[in-house]
Design a protein around this nucleic acid. Structure first.
Length: 462
DNA sequence: CTAGGGTTAG
């Protein structure tokens, strides 16, 4: 839609000045540069329709864009079009299309295509070989991959880091870290220096096999070589430790990397903090936050929530409240789950009055309480023999928030019945009816129990 | 300087 406008306006304004058809070439490239592949494709078609020829480089950019979106069919359309209008493909074109064929798992077609490429006078180069090797590796066809790797030496196209990364990754994926490492050593013998991606690949292989010591050794090796472990390195190692339920080592690793001032993604911090919270180790989680918060890391709303809930599960409501206050001071809005956790925890620990004020705070912040909050408070007050507060909360929740918790209602009825004060019971019943509570079977049973108790009748049936 | 090839895993 937009490309039509841009193309047409470019076309219409070209009459007003000296212009060069290269502007349309640039337009296509510009679309692709900002990842507007479809617009680039449309602009390409229109350019051709108006009898102009985009450059090979531009067509190659277009093919790359289409290939990345897996629009294979469109790639071949473009290729046919360039033959038709006489834009000669070059080695990049062939490599891009080889990649397309490899992705589509068309092995026979790949060979056919390579023959055609040679007919047109292009020898497969390092990129062509790497594309093929990586394709074999991805499909787990290591024998074919290694065979091609040997052919590269024969044809005097020396394998490079890309080749080795594909092969090492291929072996690792098969669980064959030994061969992967051997290749790594051979590569070094041939004078190639592994880069971060290559280290990551092998480290990931070891992590997948649970060989964390080897993985860690490689990490130190790469640091010793002056390389900077990246997010990828960190995430692979953390996941490796996690797979062995070794959260402590994962946390230690991350703090070590952070001390070295290497990039640790905030996702990793979030992940580890969440994991510690789930394992009910809120103090460790809090310590991790404190240690890394200098690292431009700020816990999100969700992380705070998880931490607070973890403290609550472990019966540390004051630590939880403190964090909640910290959230508020940072203009983060605690959600219902956070409030609910602290309220439940306080009630469980016999501090229902403290929970009350928290409930007031949440309603002041326009976070309406839910039935769980209602139930926790009422049960809490009942447990602390504060029936009065329980009763007033029951009607408060009903009136203000339309929460009618029959379970709580019946609990109070049962307790009042147990006290044997019929007048009080009836007064309560009456009040509750007015705010909208309807008694059910269980309510009636409790009321009858209360009456019997009051008049001293012993139960006949138990 | 210039387009094309290599790393996790959900």
């Amino acid at each position: 839609m937009e490309s039509v406008d841009v193309f047409e306006s470019l076309l219409s304004s070209s009459g007003l000045c000296n212009w060069d058809p290269v502007v349309f070439d640039m337009l296509i490239k510009a679309f692709l540069k900002v990842n507007m592949v479809k617009d680039g494709f449309r602009a390409f078609r229109k350019t051709v329709k108006h009898g102009m020829y985009p450059s090979v480089i531009t067509v190659n950019c277009l093919l790359t864009g289409l290939s990345k979106l897996n629009y294979s069919k469109k790639c071949w359309e473009v290729y046919a079009e360039m033959e038709r209008i006489g834009v000669h493909p070059n080695s990049c074109t062939f490599n891009i299309l080889t990649h397309v064929l490899c992705k589509d798992e068309d092995v026979n077609k790949v060979n056919e295509f390579l023959e055609k490429m040679e007919e047109e006078g292009f020898q497969p180069d390092i990129v062509t070989y790497n594309t093929l090797v990586s394709s074999y590796c991805r499909k787990g066809r290591m024998k074919d991959a290694v065979h091609l790797y040997q052919i590269m030496y024969i044809r005097d196209v020396s394998p490079d880091l890309f080749t080795y990364t594909s092969l090492i990754n291929g072996f690792c994926k098969k669980g064959n870290v030994k061969d992967a490492h051997q290749l790594f050593i051979r590569m070094a013998d041939r004078g190639l220096k592994p880069d971060v991606i290559l280290y990551n690949t092998l480290i990931s292989g070891y992590c997948k096999e649970g060989m964390m010591q080897e993985a860690r050794f490689l990490l130190h090796d790469m640091i010793g070589e002056g390389m900077h472990p990246d997010k990828f390195t960190c995430s692979v190692l953390v996941q490796g430790y996690q797979k062995q339920d070794n959260l402590v080592s994962a946390v230690n690793l991350v703090t070590e990397l952070q001390r070295f001032r290497f990039v640790v993604s905030h996702d990793i911090y979030n992940y580890l903090i969440a994991a510690l919270c789930i394992e009910n180790r809120p103090f460790a989680a809090k310590a991790l936050i404190d240690r890394v918060s200098g690292d431009r890391y700020e816990p999100s709303n969700m992380v705070y929530g998880e931490l607070i809930e973890s403290f609550c599960r472990c019966n540390f409501p004051d630590e939880a409240s403190c964090l909640k206050a910290e959230m508020v001071s940072k203009d983060l809005k605690p959600d219902i789950g956070t409030y609910r956790a602290i309220i439940k925890c306080l009630c469980k620990l016999g501090r229902s009055m403290d929970a009350n004020s928290l409930m007031r705070e949440m309603t002041d912040c326009d976070v309406p309480p839910d039935i769980e909050v209602c139930r926790a408070l009422i049960n809490g007050h009942c447990g602390e023999n504060n029936f009065c507060e329980a009763q007033s909360l029951l009607s408060f929740f009903a009136q203000e928030f339309k929460i009618f918790d029959t379970v709580c209602y019946n609990t109070i009825v049962r307790l009042l019945s147990g006290e044997g004060d019929i007048a009080k019971l009836m007064k309560f019943q009456d009040k509750m009816r007015k705010v909208g509570f309807a008694p059910n079977q269980l309510t009636c049973k409790y009321v009858i129990d209360g009456l019997q108790k009051a008049v001293g009748v012993h139960k006949i049936n138990s």
